[in-house]
Nucleic acid binder design. Structure first.
Length: 665
RNA sequence: GGCGGCGUAGCUCAGAUGGCCAGAGCAGGGGUCUCAUAAGCCCUUUGUCGGCGGUUCGAUUCCGCCCGCCGCCA
């Protein structure tokens, strides 16, 4: 069985994760999921880089041990990956013993190869970069990268004979690995090549100015240079340095997905270290571009960081995954804007996927007693149009993924969904009166054939969506009456005709409710530049009086069970809450109901604080028509008893073990 | 300064070893259907394919120069 080992970079733990970390990780996860789906034996690794002066500094400031700071941030990353459905098989931290042992092993090997030597070194040193700069590069005596003050320092360091590996590296770039270019995209390979061609200097691989690091073997007072420490994670996580090399032998060499800013470390230093240690070099370095805002790289220092939280709260994890994968030409830079996100969300997810699914499922439910059709077309030459479209889309999708053209893989899904919509419109299965007229048996058969084709094409589309938006794919399968999960898929699932006949189709609310861009931006009080602007939710112009939400129930009217079942009651989990400014009672809650995240406003602020709500599971009306309260669109309603004396709300409690999204009836 | 890349419809991008009307998605405009989430379908506008020259029967595609943007290196 083909094997493939994907890695993300290990992330430095001095910052909360932002969309850059998220992008790399989502993309790598998507690739890993695709190749698993193709039947390959795939392993996915991510982790955190926890050594270095910055951590040391933060720890000192807080008066705690560095590991405490590292623990905290590592947990943040772990939780984020869990939330985003990242399917990593392992999570490595450079502060783990297994890692240290592996680093020591590598250094032992490099030393044994005669590639380490001691030498004095002095120059202007930037503590933040952990690097020396030539005097002419300094800007007013400060670090050219960060502008921090530099100091004249003298060190006796351990050097790695990087210069020795120039020819072998050039050969690697020339030949590639397994017939593929060593670096993707190839324009980046050229950069690396010209860097190496211009001549390599030996590399200092120990530091005496830092104590928070891996002690350099045999050099008291020295710690291992941060990149030598960090890069090795890719193999220490496979057991190098331990007695159990099973994973190492099974998965190395791997494919490293990285941002273009760390290309040189991965395409020059890392293979050189490995060559020296007598180990195989990576299969490939896959370098992607940056999400830009205002045409600048997003970074903490410039303050133009897009945090995923807002978009996820409003639209869900998979909506963001979809945007990240589909909206960027993989390998190039792209601009991130909320407008583009919204446009793509509506076009692809709400209209393309959600609405198409909805119309096909609704008709099938109506015509076939809440089930999928009981008969389907015998395969005819050429087949229905959606069948042809599904074949073509499937081929494009596969080829695109294999060539790392993720945006084209997404386009193939769009294409198939468009074909399904066109098929429904062309055949008009809702029309009972037809030309020429059909007998009722003929009509039944006609509808069965058309709707089976469309539902089946939707199933195929969901298979194709699975690597990008796994939870959504699983939900689509559920709504198509199957219990497949994204993780169970194989290449054979794209074959035509696997949708079961006569399978119950559950009723369900819109998969991705259409978002009104105007309202969304109004509610955030910010326009295009809105990453970090304060949202002024209580816009005075929008001073709509908070309407009394529910009129008292009309006296003693009896309703049927069917009437009651029109109300879609669901268990939801409050993931964020804030009191609506300028309102006494209103609480704005971000609620996760199943896979879906929405904003729900309720008049419970007099009885509960935001803190009391977050993390609680409550009962919500999930299919209430949206209403605007104090300028905020509320998509649902929270159920609470009203206390007779005070009129205060008392929330309906749900056992915490009940999963979010569970139906209440 | 050296090396490399890019500049194609309002936006995001495809594409062409030089020739059949230069494309897609989104946005915009018009029409239409009603199963569906104001969704669907059909039709539709704009492009001197950055500028100027050259090679050629013919260039947006090749060459040179220029302008603008970007990357790597120094």
């Amino acid at each position: 069985m083909a094997r493939r080992y994907f890695t993300t970079p290990i992330y430095y733990v001095n910052d909360r994760p932002h969309i850059g970390h998220l992008y790399t990780t989502v993309v790598t996860d998507t690739l890993a999921r695709f190749f698993r789906q193709q039947g390959e034996d795939v392993r996915l690794l991510t982790g955190t880089d926890e050594h270095g002066q910055n951590i040391e500094k933060v720890a000192k400031k807080e008066g705690v041990a560095p590991i405490v700071v590292a623990d905290r941030h590592a947990l943040t990353f772990r939780n984020l990956w869990k939330e985003f459905g990242i399917s990593n098989d392992d999570f490595i931290r450079t502060t783990e013993l297994r890692h240290r042992l592996g680093v020591e092993e590598i250094i032992r090997r490099i030393d044994a190869a005669g590639d380490l030597y001691s030498a004095g070194h002095e120059g202007w040193y930037c503590a933040n970069c952990e690097a020396f700069y030539p005097e002419k590069d300094l800007v007013d005596g400060n670090c050219p990268v960060h502008g921090f003050k530099t100091e004249w320092q003298r060190e006796e360091n351990v050097f790695f004979r990087l210069s020795k590996y120039g020819p072998r590296l050039l050969e690697l770039y020339e030949k590639g690995v397994e017939g593929k270019p060593f670096v993707f995209p190839e324009s980046r390979l050229n950069e690396v090549r010209s860097f190496v061609e211009s001549g390599l200097k030996d590399l200092s691989v120990s530091r005496t100015t830092i104590s928070w690091g891996i002690p350099f073997p045999g050099r008291p007072g020295h710690v291992v240079y941060v990149w030598l420490d960090a890069l090795v994670n890719y193999i220490t996580a496979l057991g190098l340095g331990s007695s159990d090399l099973t994973l190492y032998e099974r998965y190395w060499p791997g494919i490293h997905v990285i941002g273009k800013d760390i290309l040189r470390f991965h395409a020059v230093y890392w293979p050189a270290f490995l060559m020296s240690a007598g180990l195989p070099v990576p299969r490939q370095i896959v370098s992607h571009g940056w999400w830009l805002r205002d045409a600048k790289k997003m970074s903490k220092s410039t303050g133009n960081v897009v945090r995923p939280d807002d978009l996820v709260a409003a639209f869900g994890v998979d909506a963001l995954r979809w945007h990240l994968v589909s909206a960027m030409s993989f390998g190039q830079d792209a601009n991130f804007s909320d407008e583009d996100f919204l446009a793509g969300y509506n076009a692809d997810l709400a209209n393309g996927l959600g609405n198409t699914l909805s119309r096909a499922v609704k008709m099938s439910r109506d015509f076939f007693g809440g089930k999928t059709p009981s008969v389907r077309r015998k395969t005819t030459p050429g087949g229905p149009l959606v069948f042809v479209a599904a074949q073509k889309a499937g081929d494009d999708w596969k080829n695109s993924f294999e060539g790392y053209r993720l945006q084209d893989a997404a386009a193939a899904i769009r294409y198939l969904l468009g074909a399904i919509d066109a098929e429904i419109t062309a055949t008009e299965p809702w029309k009972a009166l037809r030309q020429p007229p059909l007998s009722s048996e003929e009509l039944f058969e006609f509808r069965s054939h058309v709707l089976y084709d469309c539902l089946e094409a939707l199933r195929v589309a969901a298979c194709m969506l699975a690597p990008i938006a796994p939870r959504t794919a699983t939900e689509v399968f559920r709504r198509l009456g199957t219990d497949k999960r994204a993780e169970d898929l194989r290449a054979s699932d794209l074959a035509w005709g696997l949708l079961p006949l006569d399978a119950p189709l559950p009723a369900a609310p819109p998969l991705f409710p259409r978002a009104d861009a105007k309202e969304y931006f109004a509610s955030r009080g910010a326009g295009t530049a809105g990453a970090s602007k304060e949202s002024s939710v209580a816009d005075t112009k929008e001073n709509i009086s908070p309407s009394k939400q529910i009129p008292p129930s009309s006296p003693e009217t009896k309703i049927s069970i069917d009437d009651f079942l029109k109300i879609d009651l669901r268990v939801g989990e409050v993931i964020a809450a804030e009191k609506v400014e300028k309102s006494k009672k209103l609480m704005k809650m971000t609620v996760r109901i199943g896979e879906e995240v929405r904003t729900i406003v309720g008049g419970i602020a007099t009885a509960y604080t935001a803190e009391q709500l977050v993390g609680r599971k409550l009962v919500f009306v999930a299919n209430l028509a949206p209403a605007k309260l104090m300028g905020i669109e509320s998509n649902g309603m929270v159920l609470a008893a009203t206390l007779p004396e005070t009129g205060e709300a008392s929330l309906l409690a749900v056992d915490p073990s009940v999963p979010s999204g569970a139906k209440v009836k």
